[in-house]
Amino acid sequence: MPNYKEMYFELFNKITDVIIDLQEVQKKTEEMYLSSEEPQIIELKRVFDCEEKVEK
């Protein structure tokens, strides 16, 4: 007969570890975002007008 208690604890511990890892990565990326410089915004010119009628 399977040891359900052992199975449960194994699964619970692994899920808990993964959640902690995800939280750490989230914190790290938030810190990276907050410490980064303001992005340089570049205006791109349109090559063609999408509203132009296509000749048939």
Rank of each mutant, 00 (worst) to 15 (best):
M1Q: 13
M1Y: 15
P2A: 05
Y4P: 04
Y4C: 04
K5W: 13
E6S: 07
M7V: 08
M7H: 02
F9M: 11
E10V: 06
L11R: 05
N13A: 03
N13P: 01
N13E: 06
I15R: 02
I15G: 00
T16P: 00
T16S: 11
D17G: 09
V18P: 00
V18Y: 10
I19F: 05
I20V: 15
E24H: 14
E24S: 15
K28T: 15
K28M: 13
E30H: 08
E30V: 13
E31A: 14
E31P: 02
E31D: 15
M32T: 15
Y33R: 14
L34C: 04
S36M: 11
S36A: 13
E38D: 13
I41W: 04
I42H: 10
E43Y: 09
L44I: 11
L44Y: 10
L44D: 05
K45P: 02
K45C: 00
K45R: 10
R46G: 03
R46N: 06
R46Y: 08
V47I: 12
D49E: 01
D49Q: 02
D49C: 01
D49G: 00
C50A: 08
C50T: 05
C50G: 03
E51N: 02
E52Y: 01
K53E: 10
K53H: 04
E55S: 07
E55Y: 03
K56A: 08
K56Q: 03
